[in-house]
């Protein structure tokens, strides 16, 4: 595992780099009203493609960037392209670890569906809610606080359920 920075430098750089990226993304997200779920909603509801193309651009740009970077700095992208290197239905780590590929597919279906449904009913994806909150929308601030509490609940309670349900 080797990125551009040495491990020691990277440990220190994590908060700095992520803060700067967050600042830029937050500023532009406020200006453009960027929203992934909102993009799909506008597409289905009004046939508006403005936000949806933003989300498509994100997928495309990440693929192209990973592709180019993986040639330049092989060390930082050892597993690109994942489906070929690691197996077609193997997920990149993130959800609770140690389950079978089918379990991850089921979790992705449940999680994705829930995220889409809740996002539409509440008027935005997690990023949009965070941005709206800091534009002065108090109910979105409550949403953000809810997300913080949700993170703790997930790891104290839900992760255990998931592992005992699918891991057994």
């Amino acid at each position: 595992m080797a990125g551009l920075l040495s491990a020691e430098a990277a440990y220190i750089a994590v908060p700095i780099v992520t803060l700067i990226l967050g600042l830029i993304i937050g500023y532009l997200a406020q200006q453009s009203g960027f929203c992934s779920i909102g993009g799909m909603r506008d597409l289905f509801l009004f046939k508006h493609t403005r936000l949806f193309f933003g989300y498509l651009a994100l997928i495309l740009s990440s693929f192209v960037s990973y592709l180019i970077f993986s040639f330049i700095w092989t060390g930082a992208f050892p597993n690109f392209f994942w489906a070929i290197k690691k197996g077609f239905l193997t997920p990149i780590p993130g959800a609770p670890g140690g389950l079978s590929n089918w379990a991850y597919a089921i979790l992705a279906i449940i999680g994705g569906f829930g995220l889409g449904l809740l996002g539409v009913l509440l008027g935005g994806c997690p990023l949009r809610q965070t941005v709206m909150g800091f534009e002065g929308n108090i109910k979105s601030i409550f949403f953000v606080v809810g997300m913080m509490v949700g993170a703790v609940i997930f790891h104290l309670v839900v992760a255990g359920w998931v592992i005992s349900l699918f891991g057994g």
């Binding site: 992934s36 779920i37 989300y55 994100l58 997928i59 495309l60 740009s61 990440s62 693929f63 960037s65 990973y66 597993n79 690109f80 392209f81 994942w82 489906a83 070929i84 290197k85 997920p91 990149i92 780590p93 993130g94 959800a95 991850y104 979790l107 992705a108 449940i110 999680g111 994705g112 829930g114 995220l115 809740l118 996002g119 509440l122 994806c125 997690p126 990023l127 809610q129 409550f142 949403f143 953000v144 606080v145 809810g146 997300m147 913080m148 509490v149 949700g150 993170a151 609940i153 997930f154 839900v158 992760a159 998931v162």
Partner: peptide, 25 residues
């Protein structure tokens, strides 16, 4: 907010990381 974060973590990330994961293969 609580529910959204729980379902997002089931999926393994919010819509943005999911897009990045798909871009990564």
């Amino acid at each position: 907010g609580v529910l959204v974060l729980i379902v997002a973590l089931l999926l393994g990330g919010c819509p943005y990381r999911t897009a990045l994961r798909f871009g990564n293969g």
